[in-house]
Amino acid sequence: MGHGQAMPGSNPSLLTFNSSAAAFFGGARSAFMSVFFVVLAGTYVGLGALAHDFGLSAFWLTLSTVLVWAAPAQVILISGIGTGAALFEVALAVTLSAIRLFPMVVALLPLVRTRSTRLHDLLLPTHFTSVSMWVESLRLLPMLPAEQRAAFCNGLSVGYMGAAVGFGFVGYYLAAGLPPLLAATLLFLTPLSFLISTARNARMMMDRLALGIGLALGALLTIMHVEFDLMWAGVGGGTLAYAIHRLREARA
């Protein structure tokens, strides 16, 4: 993996396919070969067990994976319903955890789009946006010709979502035999893999700063129980990292 070589826009296409269908299957194949396949498998075994313990059906779990498609939001939703929390509070917690999806979509779509892309071609990549797909897309898409990126991205996402749905079922039916310590280990996959994969993708100083400042600010605001902590950590930390990046560029 050429450290620092795969900068967006600076290299010729390294991955090309003969057709959109081939790009789609190429994306799905890369989903099954990435570390996120293992991470999603474990995470959704954990979520399946959680859904089972709180008395939700396997079909409900599957639908929540397809519709929500964000592990932190699903954990909040399932444990919120299961413990009988006020629905308004659950909705608020879900929406706060989902704010990250907004800048992620903004950063992703310009990579997927070409001049001839229409709005409806962007609906699927928009809905599919999640940490695993975003991290892998930002890493891989710059190596593809622009007109094949949407198909590759959809294939990648369908691969990940298929794994999540499948392993959700596994967890659901294994739930009774899943010891609490193992269940905890599976739930730990989400923060751990988010942390490490974001760090892997952080090749530019700006991304590293955003990660470091966001972690510190997020921890501080969460501990202080500041309202909308994630939004402040994201906008404040991200803007600070961006500003430092611009200043350094201006000096260079």
């Binding site: 907004f102 940490v131 923060p191 600010l217 997020g218 994630l230 994201g234 930390g237 990292a241």
Partner: peptide, 16 residues
Amino acid sequence: SRAVATATLAGVIAKL
């Protein structure tokens, strides 16, 4: 946006 997405994600990690 990429910086904000990364920092928000970092906030989610800290919280989780």
